[in-house]
Amino acid sequence: MTPPTSRTWSKRGHTPLIRVRGRSRGRVSVAALCCYRPGARSRLIYRYILHDPHGGHTKSGRRSFSWTDYRDLLRVVHHQLGAPFVLVWDNLNTHRAAGLRDFVAEQDWITVFQLPSYAPDLNPVEGIWSALRRSRQANTAFTDPDHLLRALRQGLRQIQYRSGLIDGCLAATGLTLTTSRPEIQ
């Protein structure tokens, strides 16, 4: 758990060092969706996985979200929103997994558009991660995975209540809710 740094200082000519005790003893994976609807408050829905500190893997044997974890997240989003939705995804390999593609094809309440490769500037969730790193995680050396998880939940909860910040993440992409969305292959 290398601490992200935002600002620090030291004497002129001396490079500042951040000392962290021990090695990483755990891993946390987070997936989030920014939800927008014209005339409604923007929402952030997220899920996290705390990995086994000894092996770092989940039940599925992966060191990150599996396609079944994303499938379950999409079901939760559909339940919370209570309406069909359009999903705009980056090119993470798990997003393109055969099982997830089959699941999405079977559902009439999901429409998926893929972002072009190497286009994080078009993904509003990247703005959420940036805001989170600059606020709750900046200049913090986490003592254990639970400490990281507490800070992560507090930071994401604060962002959830700031719909203006979530709107700003969409505005930063240059995309709008009224733009016609051509399907990207």
Rank of each mutant, 00 (worst) to 15 (best):
S29W: 04
G13W: 14
Q160C: 03
T143V: 14
S29L: 10
I184F: 02
L17G: 14
S10T: 03
R71L: 09
Q160F: 01
A98I: 13
V112H: 02
A172R: 10
A119M: 07
A131D: 11
L92W: 01
W9N: 12
T8W: 03
W129C: 09
R150Y: 02
W89C: 11
A131H: 07
S117P: 10
G168W: 06
V86M: 01
R7I: 09
K11T: 11
Y70G: 13
G56E: 05
N123E: 03
L33N: 05
G26F: 13
H14F: 10
A83C: 15
H14G: 05
R136W: 04
D146W: 14
G174T: 04
S180V: 04
Q107S: 08
F85N: 01
D90R: 00
S6D: 11
H51Q: 15
G164E: 15
M1V: 10
L74D: 11
R134E: 11
F113G: 01
V20K: 08
H57V: 14
G155H: 03
L33S: 13
W129Q: 13
H54M: 03
N91R: 08
F142T: 15
R21I: 01
D108M: 08
R19F: 05
P4L: 04
Q185G: 07
L156V: 14
L33R: 00
L152H: 14
H54I: 06
L33V: 15
R23A: 12
R19V: 13
R19Q: 13
G99F: 04
L156Q: 08
T176A: 12
V77D: 08
H79E: 12
W89D: 01
R37E: 15
L175T: 05
L177Y: 07
T2A: 04
H14C: 10
H14P: 01
T176L: 00
W109I: 13
N139C: 08
Q185Y: 06
T2F: 00
P182M: 00
A40Q: 15
W129M: 06
C35A: 11
R41F: 02
I184P: 06
D72Y: 01
S66A: 06
L73D: 05
I49M: 11
I18F: 07
R71P: 03
N91S: 12
A119F: 03
I45T: 06
